[in-house]
Amino acid sequence: MRLHDERVAGDGLITIGGLARDCGLTPSALRFYDDCGLLVPVRVDAVTGYRYYSKAQVDRGVMIRRLRGIGMPLEVVSEILNGDGARAQRLLDEHVAELAQRAREAAAVARVIKAEIGAGVVLSAAVLAAAIEQVRAAAARDREIPVLAGVLMESNADSVTLTATDRYRLSTRAMVPVRPSGGAWSVVVDAGELGVIGSWLRGSAEVSVRATDAGLVFTGDGSERRCGIIDAVFPDYRAMLAGLGAVRTRVVVRRDVLLTALDEGAAAPVVCSVDGSGLFVTCDRQLGHDSPSHTDPLSGRRRIPAAVTGPDIELAFSPKTLRPALVSAIGPEIMLDITATDTPVVVRSATDGELTTLVMPTAITDSKEYGA
């Protein structure tokens, strides 16, 4: 069958486009192989620079394509095309053996990577145990809304984050993994079950955590623990944090001193008044003489030394909400970021931003019922 005119020169030679179609190569590849000396045109037009090939070169072009398709280096392709049959077969056998060895090595690496991915994210057991205790205190005690009795655990390439909220308080802490996992995941687990895991973690150095359909799996020191998943959507706490207004008043105070002003288990709201001279707390408990704070005998207000920036403000808190937030806070000094009397107060360490807790104030009028 006669070739089409655009593929054949006047003397029966094939144009570069025609050879490209017959060999399954591109014209640019043929020009490259010309430059390499692997497939040199029979003739190159001196005026136009067009390359022309003989029909006999089609087989050579196909052979080049097939050899390059199995990853054969150019210099070895040249030896196979230009050498004797026995040497060509030996070179092919050596190349296939090398490919097989590389495939075995790649498979071994893949197995290691898959094992690491399957092992989950690796964390310091001590850090995770502390984070669990700090955050799960903010989970709801009742199960009226099941998801609020859980802790959201999220893992990505950079961090692992624990978050809990009972609607009146929210705690969230991010941790940097010892070794991150290969994929991101997010699950809600029962706060009580997670507390048991926290106690077990204290006997380990490192722990890997992976999410499965059945729950979270914790592995450390040759043993394993599991924690069931609460199948519900956790509140969008990031939107809650992003929606907080600008900080108007900031208080930096010693955590232990503030804790001494709060009755453990008391029901009456605690009124906190802030002005330029410090923090004043009004509650039922009388402080001991060894406390750095001072009680006004007439008003019953206790002055607690604090660094205050911003306008004066007065808020009230339920001790059952405020005290656990202070107990779980990180560091000797805490920072209270206050926006308004009816928006959450942000409680965090004055020097370490890993743990953030939101505490919702109660209405000031509620405290009057207790004679404050």
Rank of each mutant, 00 (worst) to 15 (best):
L170F: 07
E354W: 06
R102Y: 04
G17P: 08
Q134D: 03
P269Y: 02
F234C: 06
G276I: 08
Y237F: 15
R285Q: 12
Y52N: 02
V189P: 04
R285H: 11
A268V: 08
M335F: 08
W185D: 09
Y237L: 08
G192P: 10
S159C: 13
V122I: 15
A268M: 04
T295V: 15
E354L: 14
A164K: 02
N156H: 05
T161S: 12
G215H: 04
V151Y: 02
L91A: 05
E264M: 10
A137L: 13
G12Y: 01
T351N: 10
R167P: 12
Y370A: 12
I304R: 07
H294V: 15
V274R: 05
L287Q: 08
W200G: 05
L123S: 01
G118M: 06
L91R: 02
A138W: 05
V196T: 11
V233Q: 11
A131W: 01
P177C: 04
R31D: 00
L38T: 03
V127M: 10
T172F: 03
T48D: 10
L355C: 02
L19W: 01
R323I: 12
I197F: 05
G10H: 14
A108V: 12
P73F: 01
V270R: 01
G183E: 14
S299L: 09
T48N: 07
S204V: 15
L287P: 04
H294A: 15
S299H: 07
G220K: 02
V8C: 14
S291M: 02
Q286H: 12
L241M: 10
D11Q: 05
P235E: 10
I330P: 09
G118T: 06
A267C: 11
A363R: 14
I364V: 12
R250E: 15
D275M: 11
V40F: 00
I70D: 00
S273R: 12
W185P: 03
V62T: 00
L262W: 00
D5H: 13
H289Y: 12
A140F: 07
R167S: 15
P332A: 14
Q286C: 13
R238D: 15
L216H: 02
D366F: 07
K114W: 10
K320S: 15
L241Y: 07
T163Q: 05
T161D: 09
R173Y: 05
L148I: 06
P361E: 11
I80W: 00
R136F: 03
I80A: 00
A88H: 01
G150F: 03
G195Y: 02
E206D: 12
P27L: 01
E6A: 14
A261Q: 11
V251C: 00
A29E: 00
S171Y: 07
L336K: 00
V346A: 11
I117K: 08
L259W: 08
